[in-house]
Write a protein that binds this DNA or RNA. Structure first.
Lengths: 272, 272
DNA sequence: CCAAGGGTTCCGATATATGGAACCTGATTA
DNA sequence: TAATCAGGTTCCATATATCGGAACCCTTGG
């Protein structure tokens, strides 16, 4: 079953990226593993893998058992993982705000960012209601058919926006998707004036979203916050009722971002 | 204060290892950071660091804020860390056994392995008693003056042992350190017969240890288990009273190792 | 309009990675 | 005891990535 099926051959353009991909495979293992088992799992040539594992071993990321054939995760790797998770209060704080918002409005919510001309889902908390859309952090959607995407567009300088939109094809996903540039411009103008945006089945049939930006007084914001619900439970009017809670949450997230930025500027070396 | 003090210039012999070291620095950051701040912290040339960060960004390990200057940890990095910690029940299980042993005997205990001719501390749980030696996982001590080290030596074939000891200098740390090869051989012989070993102030003055190996029927064991206590609270006789508890714990750890190995051999692809 | 402090790009010299093939090693089998 | 085999390890010519000084490009802020 693990023969030659769908192993992704450790994609990556550079050696370093391939090594990270290897680390991900290793991270998922809950047992000891051997060179050979990794060869089968990743499809990499044996000497290549041998070299990679050797590097990880000499740097203390992996360790070998007595037999010299089985590897397991080293203490340095574990410390790295712990440190990564411990020192991520920014994400933790954002996530807490998100969770609270989901509690308040009873629908799935997510935090988004503009990345490479697309909207990137940074984090997401699902409602507990049985009927729901399943979208996960890390996925991307086009700007022109996303509520927060339209907000990102609205805060751009016109020239900048035109440059971006010229490179993009306004792909139509549903009957409601704005594929006409003029219509999109008009919508963006409205959205910019209002300070919030809808996505009324413009990307997925049956999905209605409302979004705002985490306000950033010093310039454009790259943090969107959106509620997503099936139209079975949500209308534009109902969504508007959630707007205050949404804006409150957005302000909290803005405060978290602001703090993280100013901390970084000072770079105080205060460990606890 | 962060000017030119003691930044370690990201040690590492290969690019990949340097990148991992960079990841460790990033892991410790709890805020956004910029290229420039990393240059100051690591001493790496700007273009080099720029390339590294770029690689991490394009692979989703990092992400940039709206200003394009501040980086933060990406979702893929977070997932990697979570996966690393979640799928490490081997370590978790071992640690639980260790913790229980510390409860039972009331003194600090650790799990060790032989690595590159030295004894490596894999894990350690401290007693709560106020007076204690502070040694941490990842540190190394010479084989000839460590209780578990002597056990590792005792299970080697004589030729193998001689090869190792010939390369080592029997450095003396205390009055009790066995620096005489004949005396060491005799001790090893005793230790091998008994199945347990003492370190009676042979490495650190005032520190007494007793160790056993996690038994491995299929060959030599690379897992030692030791109790370490200050002589204020511990004598050889008292240590012997702890031996049954120690051996019980060692057997449990052996069972955990055995399981992890057989799982690995089968390499069943069962996710939950 | 001109600095100045970042970030980004260039590019030739250099160091690494690559992976097929050969080699070693210990365990099993004949 | 020798032949076999399944890993692991090493070799090495070639392809690729890294390195980092220097120059370039932005965005502030005077």
């Amino acid at each position: 079953m693990t023969t030659k099926s769908e192993m992704s051959r450790l994609e990556g353009d550079t050696p370093a990226q391939r090594l990270l991909a290897l680390l991900e495979v290793i991270a998922g293992k809950d047992q000891f593993f051997t060179l050979q088992s990794m060869v089968e799992e990743t499809g990499l040539p044996k000497p290549t893998l041998h070299r990679m594992l050797q590097q990880l071993e000499t740097s203390g990321m992996l360790q070998r058992e007595a037999d010299g054939r089985h590897y397991s995760k080293g203490s340095r790797l574990r410390r790295l993982a712990e440190s990564l998770l411990l020192n991520d209060t920014v994400h933790g704080a954002r996530h807490a705000v998100l969770r609270k918002l989901v509690d308040d409005v009873g629908e799935s919510c997510n935090i988004t960012a503009l990345s490479g001309g697309e909207v990137l889902y940074l984090d997401r908390v699902e409602t507990s209601a049985p009927l729901r859309f399943y979208l996960h952090p890390g996925s991307r959607v086009p700007v022109h058919c996303s509520a927060s995407g339209k907000l990102f567009l609205a805060q751009m300088a016109p020239a900048q926006r035109r440059r971006l939109l010229n490179e993009l094809t306004l792909e139509g996903f549903t009957r409601n998707t704005l594929v006409n540039p003029e219509a999109l411009e008009a919508e963006i103008e409205t959205v910019g004036r209002q300070g919030f945006a809808f996505d009324d089945e413009e990307f997925l049939p049956g999905l209605l979203c409302i979004a705002v930006l985490a306000p950033n007084p010093d310039g454009p914001s790259n943090t969107g916050l959106a509620i997503q619900a099936p139209i079975m439970r949500m209308t534009r009017d109902k969504a508007l009722e959630c707007l205050p809670a949404l804006q409150r949450a957005a302000e909290q997230i803005a405060a978290i971002n602001r703090e993280a930025l100013s901390d970084a500027a000072q770079a105080v070396a205060g460990e606890r």
